[in-house]
Measured scan of single mutants.
Amino acid sequence: MDSLVVLVLCLSCLLLLSLWRQSSGRGKLPPGPTPLPVIGNILQIGIKDISKSLTNLSKVYGPVFTLYFGLKPIVVLHGYEAVKEALIDLGEEFSGRGIFPLAERANRGFGIVFSNGKKWKEIRRFSLMTLRNFGMGKRSIEDRVQEEARCLVEELRKTKASPCDPTFILGCAPCNVICSIIFHKRFDYKDQQFLNLMEKLNENIKILSSPWIQICNNFSPIIDYFPGTHNKLLKNVAFMKSYILEKVKEHQESMDMNNPQDFIDCFLMKMEKEKHNQPSEFTIESLENTAVDLFGAGTETTSTTLRYALLLLLKHPEVTAKVQEEIERVIGRNRSPCMQDRSHMPYTDAVVHEVQRYIDLLPTSLPHAVTCDIKFRNYLIPKGTTILISLTSVLHDNKEFPNPEMFDPHHFLDEGGNFKKSKYFMPFSAGKRICVGEALAGMELFLFLTSILQNFNLKSLVDPKNLDTTPVVNGFASVPPFYQLCFIPV
C-alpha cells in the first residue's frame, strides 16, 4: 500500500510540474494548442506526416506557434517570411542545433551535424575549407563525379535492359564520391566492405524516417530501456565508426604531411598542428563522427533524390523527352556531361530543381535551437528552445509555385524558357546551418541524371499514369515507394 501511495504522489508531482512548466512558459512563447500533461501535443500531431499537421496548425495559430513534445516546448516556423527572418536575418541567433537524443547517444555531441557552439563552428569551418581545397564546386571533385558517372552508366548497362530496382546502384554512385573525398578511394560496386557500408546507410535513412524515431526523440528514456529499431540505428553508426577508425589508422601509418590526399589526411594534419593548443576540438573521436556525418549527409540524401527523380521522369515521359532533346543538342553522344553545360541547359536545370522542390526530401529539416534569449515577432523565446522549420511550407508555397503539388519544371523557367532562380528554393535548409555539401549534391544530381539520360531511355513496367509517387515514409525524410524500371541503351 505504501508503495502505491508513493507512486501516486510521484505521478501527481510530475503532472503538477508539467502543468507549471507549460503555464509559466506560455506567456512568453508564441500561441499554440493546449498541451496535455506529460505528453504535450503529441496526440494532435500525425507522426506519419508531421508536415501536414504543421500546415493545419498554422492555419489556426499563424506562421509562428508553439507545440509541446512531452514536456519540451518547440517553436514552429511556417512559411517563407518566418523562416527567412529566423535563419537568414537572425542567422546567428537561430544557428543552434536542437535536442536530438538519439544523435546524442550516437555521437556524444561530436561531428558537424549535431554539434553546437565553438566545437560546431570550428569543425564546420575546417570541413568547408577542406572540401573547397579539394575542389568542391571546382574541377578536381567534378572529375571524381564524372568518373563515377561513367562507372554508374557501365553498371546500368550490365542490367541488359531487364527490369531492376535502382535503389542499390543509385546509392553506390554518391557513396563512392564521398569515399573518394574521405578515403581517396572508390570501391567496386561488388566489394563486400562497400556493400556493408551501403547497407547500413540505407537502413539508417529508413529507420530515421519512421514514426518510432519521432517518439524516441521526444521521450528519450525509451532509447535506453525499450527495444526497437533505434538500437539497430545505433549499432549501424557504431559499425561505421569502427570502419572509419580502421581507415584512420591506415592513414596514420602512411600519411605524407607534405601531400595530403583526402579529408582524413587533412584532419590528422590539423590534429598535429593543434596538439599544443589544448583542449582542441580536433580529436580522433571528432574525426570519426565528422566522417560519419559526411557519409550520412552525402550519400543517402543524394541517392534518395536520384531514385525519386527517375520515378518522376517515368511518370512524366514528356519531361524526359525534353531533357534528352536538350542533352542531344548541347552535349551530344561523344563526350561526358560537365558542369559548364548546365548554363546552356535551362530546361534540365529546371527539372533538377523541380525534383528537389517537389519531393521535399527533408520536410522539417533537422531541429534548430536559439543560442540566446531572443525577441522574435513580439515573442520571447528562451535560450536553448528547439525550433522546428517547415521546409515544406517554403518549397510548396502556392504563391511562389502555382499548383505546388504538381510536378512542373516551369516553376523554374521564365516566359522565355530561361532558368529562373527562386529564393524559396531551400531543399538544403538556409542560413548558417545550410548543408555543407550543397554544391557537391547539386553537381552530382546534374551529372548523374544527364549521364543516365544521355545513355538510356527509361521504360516503366506499368502505365506511367498508374505510377504512385507518394512517399512511403514522410517523417525525417521523404522516401519514394518501391518501383522497377528498364534502362534501355540509346
Rank of each mutant, 00 (worst) to 15 (best):
T66C: 04
D143M: 12
P363Y: 04
I374E: 02
R125T: 09
D265V: 02
T450K: 00
R329L: 11
S115K: 08
T469W: 03
S242M: 07
G79P: 01
P404Q: 04
V472T: 07
P481V: 02
K423S: 13
L440Y: 02
G62F: 00
T386G: 10
Y61Q: 02
E326G: 00
I244E: 01
Y379M: 06
D262A: 07
R307A: 04
N231A: 11
V76E: 00
S242C: 08
Q261M: 13
V5T: 15
C10L: 12
L15P: 02
N466S: 12
N176P: 01
I74T: 10
K315C: 06
S58P: 03
P489T: 02
V472H: 10
D49M: 03
K121N: 15
E288P: 04
E154W: 05
F226C: 13
D49S: 10
L445G: 03
T348W: 04
K432H: 15
I178S: 03
Q192E: 12
R132F: 09
Y347A: 01
D468L: 12
T55S: 12
P279N: 10
F126G: 04
V75R: 00
A106N: 11
P337Y: 01
H396K: 11
A350P: 01
G98A: 14
K190N: 15
C10R: 01
L395D: 15
D89E: 12
E250D: 08
N403R: 12
G332R: 04
G437Y: 08
Q193C: 10
G117E: 09
F226G: 04
L54E: 00
P211V: 10
K459E: 09
F401Q: 03
S220W: 15
F428S: 04
I181A: 04
M406H: 08
I181V: 11
D188V: 05
A441P: 02
P33N: 00
D468G: 06
R307W: 01
I327V: 08
G111H: 07
L9T: 10
S429H: 05
W212F: 08
H396F: 07
R144T: 14
L445N: 05
P346S: 07
S58E: 08
L306H: 00
P409S: 01
F134S: 12
M257E: 14
K432S: 15
G27I: 15
P464M: 06
Y483C: 02
M136I: 15
S242R: 14
I112E: 11
F446S: 01
E285K: 07
I47A: 11
K421G: 14
I123D: 05
T130H: 13
T392W: 03
S58A: 13
I74L: 09
R357G: 00
N258T: 14
L314K: 00
T66S: 06
L57G: 02
F425P: 05
G475L: 10
V330S: 06
E354I: 02
K315I: 04
H411L: 01
E285M: 07
Q340I: 08
K200H: 10
V352A: 04
N403H: 13
F267P: 02
N204K: 03
N133F: 11
P317F: 03
L395W: 08
L268S: 03
D188Q: 09
L87R: 03
L294C: 03
T364A: 09
F219S: 04
H184R: 14
M443G: 02
H276E: 08
C372G: 09
K206G: 10
F412E: 01
L128T: 13
Y68L: 02
I45K: 01
G109N: 08
P33A: 00
F425V: 03
A149P: 01
S23M: 11
G296R: 14
A321V: 12
R21E: 03
D262Y: 02
F226P: 02
F168Q: 15
Q356L: 13
R108F: 14
D165V: 01
F187R: 03
H276Q: 10
F183I: 03
A106R: 09
F94M: 08
G40Q: 01
N466I: 08
E250F: 06
N259R: 13
D397G: 05
L71H: 07
V355K: 00
N116Y: 03
E148W: 00
E155G: 03
K59D: 07
E274C: 11
L306M: 13
L268D: 05
P33D: 00
K270P: 03
P37A: 04
V352D: 00
P471Q: 03
F226S: 07
A477R: 10
D256I: 15
S429N: 10
V5E: 14
Q192R: 14
P382G: 02
A82V: 13
P35L: 02
L485Q: 01
V490L: 14
P227T: 14
I387A: 05
N398R: 11
E142Y: 04
K383Y: 03
F239C: 13
I222S: 06
P382I: 04
N204L: 07
Y189G: 03
D256F: 07
E92A: 13
V472Y: 08
L156H: 00
N107S: 13
I47S: 11
L287G: 02
L268G: 04
K72M: 06
I169L: 13
G135E: 12
H396L: 06
F295W: 11
I488G: 02
Y189R: 03
